[in-house]
Simulated assay, not measured.
Amino acid sequence: MSHALDPAAQEADAALFAIETEIDWLSAVSPTGNHDRWTAFVGSEYRAAPALTYAPHATDFDALRGRLTELPLDDIEHPLIELLLREKRSELQRQIDLVALRGKDGFIQASVALFGAPDAVLLRQAREILENVPVVADPSDPVGAGEIAVAALAARDVYKKADPDFDFGVFVEADINSALMVNHGTLWIDADTKVPRDRVGALIAHEVGTHVVTRQNGRRQPLKQMETGLPDYDPLQEGLATLAEWLAGCLPPQRLRVLAARVVAADMAIAGRSLEEVFTCLHETHSITRHAAFDTAVRALRGGGLTKDAVYLEGLVDLLAWLGEGHDIAPLYAGKFALSQLPTISKLTEEGFLLPPALLPTHLTGEGCAARLDAARTTPITEFYSKDLT
Rank of each mutant, 00 (worst) to 15 (best):
A4V: 06
A4Y: 01
A4H: 06
L5P: 01
Q10W: 10
A18V: 07
A18N: 07
T21I: 08
E22G: 11
I23G: 06
T32P: 00
T32Q: 13
H35I: 14
W38T: 03
T39Y: 00
V42R: 13
G43V: 04
S44E: 06
A51T: 09
A55H: 14
P56H: 04
A58V: 01
D60I: 01
D62W: 15
A63F: 06
L68H: 02
E70K: 05
E77H: 09
E77T: 05
E77S: 10
H78F: 00
I81Q: 06
L84M: 13
L85N: 04
L85D: 02
K88H: 07
K88Y: 06
R94F: 00
A100C: 07
G103Q: 03
V112H: 03
P118V: 06
P118T: 07
V121Q: 15
L123Y: 12
R127H: 11
L130Y: 09
V135E: 15
A137M: 08
P142H: 06
G144L: 13
G146D: 15
G146S: 12
A149T: 05
L153M: 11
D157M: 14
K160D: 02
K161R: 13
A162W: 08
D167K: 03
F168L: 00
G169L: 12
V172S: 07
E173F: 12
A174E: 13
I176G: 06
L180K: 03
H184R: 10
H184M: 15
T186M: 13
L187V: 03
I189H: 03
D190K: 15
D190E: 12
K194I: 02
R197C: 01
R197W: 02
G201L: 09
A205I: 11
H206P: 00
E207H: 08
T214W: 01
R215F: 08
Q216D: 04
G218W: 03
R219A: 14
R219M: 09
R219Y: 07
R219K: 15
E227Q: 14
P231I: 04
D232L: 15
Y233N: 13
G239R: 05
L243M: 04
W246V: 01
G249R: 08
C250R: 12
C250K: 10
P253V: 01
P253K: 11
Q254P: 10
L259F: 14
V263W: 11
D267I: 09
D267G: 14
D267K: 09
G272Q: 08
E276S: 13
V278L: 11
A293T: 01
F294I: 01
F294Q: 00
V298K: 13
R302M: 07
G303C: 04
A310E: 11
G315E: 03
L316I: 01
V317D: 05
A321D: 07
W322N: 00
L323T: 01
G326W: 07
P331T: 02
Y333L: 07
A334D: 03
Q341W: 14
L342N: 08
L348G: 00
T349W: 13
E350K: 09
E351A: 13
G352F: 02
P357K: 04
E367I: 09
D374I: 03
P380R: 11
T382E: 04
E383H: 05
F384M: 14
